[in-house]
Write a protein that binds this DNA or RNA. Structure first.
Lengths: 154, 154
DNA sequence: CCACCTGATTCGGACCACGAACTAATCCCT
DNA sequence: AGGGATTAGTTCGTGGTCCGAATCAGGTGG
């Protein structure tokens, strides 16, 4: 193999660089929807269901104080709201507002479209294999549900 | 397949969730080395070679002002330095200091170790296939060299 | 020599992360 | 029944990060 083709890339470098790629796509799409990457991520997580702060912090991997700030700023945009938890007066549940739902749906759909393009150089079989292998890595490492599973994906 | 096994995960969700996973590992490792994620990323990029600000900004995907700040803070730590470019008095080249090199080497090696563990549920053939498919996605999308290729990886 | 372009920095503003401390509510044991 | 321990979440202080506009200094070409 000619030197110009570059070195063999192992699984570590491939994972890190693909992460950089997906991060960039995610951040670009968020910005076009007037969101920051963290706000976009919050909206995507809340599409599935409302969450208490404790669980939401665990899913997003954030300190409680960080999450308070993020929810404050996103609520100030009118995209989420805090609801009291009737079973525990200390707790709140964070949920999307109607406007937050709309924005989340658009952002999520556009993010899916763009990320779906990334492996377009692979054929269907290869794409399926990639999905299967990455999915197993994700499951083995117990990644929280930070992005909804799209119907009829892959 | 039983319902308990969960939905079929497509390539989009698999990519996003694996990105979340790698981000978390990267951030955790950086923190243990007393670095922020962005500082860690800067150090990793500079391991390969010094860069001018313009090119460094392109590789990292940052605005020039953002990069100035990041280099300021990292230089204040004594990890990088700005050198004048003899061929153009406007330009500087950013390079690792001796201390920066040492920290970068340790951080990089530890990051590699941890990320290498992520696909440990796959066998060697599957790991090779994952590396190959992801590498092709990375190359097709012209991802800049944000992480050095490790010798004998995969 | 001057206008235009390039390389980088500064400024202002907003976002984001965390740990410590705090407030309020819940639970459990004596 | 009351008090101590624990839990849920917020506030505060601090430092890091991001960007666009403006600015400054140097390079280039007509």
């Amino acid at each position: 193999m000619a030197k110009a083709a570059g070195e063999q890339m192992g699984v570590v470098t491939a994972l890190v660089r693909s992460t950089f790629l997906v991060n960039a796509v995610y951040a670009d799409t968020a910005r076009e929807y007037g969101l920051t990457q963290q706000q976009g991520q919050l909206l995507c997580v809340l599409m599935a269901q409302p969450y208490g702060m404790g669980e939401l912090g665990e899913v997003l991997g954030l300190a409680k104080s960080s999450l308070s700030g993020l929810v404050d700023r996103t609520a100030r945009r009118g995209l989420v709201r805090r609801e009291s938890d009737p079973s525990d007066n200390r707790a709140v549940r964070v949920e999307l507002t109607a406007e937050g739902s709309r924005l989340a749906d658009g952002f999520y759909a556009e993010t899916c479209r763009r990320i779906e393009q990334l492996p377009s150089g692979l054929d269907d079989t290869e794409r399926g294999t990639l999905a299967d292998l990455l999915a197993r890595v994700v499951r083995d490492n117990e990644v929280p549900p930070v992005f909804m599973v799209l119907n009829e994906q892959g």
